[in-house]
Computed example of a mutant assay.
Amino acid sequence: MTGDANTTIVRDLMAEFAGLTGLDPPRARPRRYLWTDAYAVCNYLELFRRTGDGTYRDLALRLVDQVHHTLGRHRDDDSRTGWISGLPEEEGEAHPTRGGLRIGKPLPERKPGEPFDERLEWERDGQYYHYLTKWMHALSRVSRVTGDPVYVQWAVELAKAAHAAFTHVPSSGGRKRTYWKMSIDLARPLVPAMGQHDPLDGFVTYSELRAAGGRIDLTPEIADMAGICRGGSLATDDPLGIGGLLFDAGRIVQILEGSGRIAQLAGREGFAHENLLASVLDAALSGLARFSGGGTLRYPADYRLAFREFGLSIGIRGVGPLAERVRENPPLSRQADALMRYVPLADEIERFWTDPKNREAGTWMQNREINTVMLATSLAPREFLTV
């Protein structure tokens, strides 16, 4: 499929998303969901880059504003009101991310003392760490594209708030860990388990923000996340998780390009995470081998979750640029060349889901907004994959 054809499809997909969620035309109570919106911001920036049409830049900025004024404030069905940070109105407007951002789930968060129900918890509101890091990345991209430093400042303030709330030392002792899910006010964990790739994602995202020129120092947070990363297993056969590894690998390489150090991710004060990039690429290769041998891409649409597959195809779309950047480093170049063998998987995923008949499946329609946006990202991934 040509770039022009992709641009046309992406424009249509993002127009569909804007109408479905109350972005354009704007609704008084838009339906915002943090993960989807982070990808959508990058998609509008990509359409602006491709077409030069300022309407798409303006949609990205309007979406940022809607997210902050919807997910940065308490729910309509909550007895609490105002900014979830607790800041007064004027100060909250100036610092909309200081209390984090809600997920945007349909049900209220679990109340203190209310029994845990795993099925219901997936539909309950709160804050997810890995959603917050995606929004930090989106804000960083807005700052780069517009030249306005306030967006990366908001991203850094979000990083500070999230890190302080989500990281903890277990009561049994040992190294710091991160919680999977926190309450809306960041006062208590709702799911205390740690996401497998959350520390890596935090480490890379904080490093991205530092490289973007945020005025607030994130050195202690970067060091914390590096310590949590050490010794953890990254391997997964989940396509969304594999795609996340590839996304992080691509960002690591871009962050390192300026310093000329491709073997490690080094901090300004001498801290270094040895062999990080090689470990991430190894885990991605292992996961791709297992996933591609599993045969799930041969299933009919009703038995597939498109957004998880798009996580993989988006990550794969960054492999080519990554391979070019590590060409002068033989060990990393060999890993990148091995990854290039899996590029046809992205083509296969996109070809399947761009077929309108497959987008009539129940699994598509039940997750229509996230599927629509992530398909658009896969077809036009440059802004999302760039730091």
Rank of each mutant, 00 (worst) to 15 (best):
R80I: 09
L240C: 10
E89G: 12
M1Q: 09
R31D: 14
R57T: 07
G318H: 00
A40K: 04
G72M: 12
D58F: 02
G362I: 02
E369I: 15
L246R: 02
G213A: 07
L63P: 06
V64Q: 09
E157D: 10
G19M: 09
Q254E: 13
F384S: 00
I314G: 02
G260L: 03
A223S: 11
D58G: 10
P321E: 03
V204G: 07
D248G: 02
A211R: 13
R144L: 11
P96G: 08
W83H: 15
T363S: 15
L101F: 10
V343N: 09
E89H: 12
D238P: 02
Q127K: 00
R268N: 04
I349S: 04
T386L: 08
P115A: 08
D12G: 15
L139T: 02
Y151F: 15
R210E: 15
M225R: 01
L186A: 04
S207G: 14
L158E: 06
L332T: 01
H197F: 11
A361K: 02
A338P: 01
A159Q: 03
E348Q: 14
A301S: 15
H95Y: 12
E118G: 00
T372C: 09
P115G: 09
D148Q: 10
S292D: 10
A40E: 03
F310W: 01
Y39K: 05
R62V: 13
F116C: 01
L34V: 13
S143T: 08
V156I: 12
E350W: 05
G173A: 01
H137I: 07
L246H: 01
D78T: 05
D237R: 15
L256T: 02
T21S: 13
P300I: 07
K134E: 09
T97L: 12
V373M: 05
D78N: 10
L132V: 05
L120Y: 03
A235E: 14
L240R: 10
H68W: 11
L265A: 07
R177K: 11
P239F: 05
D238C: 05
D78P: 02
N371K: 06
Q153N: 11
S143D: 08
W353T: 06
R290G: 07
H197N: 14
G295Y: 00
N275S: 12
F17S: 12
D185L: 10
R141K: 12
L339S: 00
G99H: 06
V326D: 04
A376M: 06
N371G: 15
P88I: 09
V387P: 03
G318W: 00
L385N: 06
P149Q: 14
R175E: 08
A263W: 13
P189F: 04
R32Q: 13
D125T: 00
A226K: 13
M225K: 00
A187E: 14
Y129S: 06
T219F: 09
P300H: 11
Y33I: 10
G231H: 11
D24V: 14
W154I: 01
D355F: 03
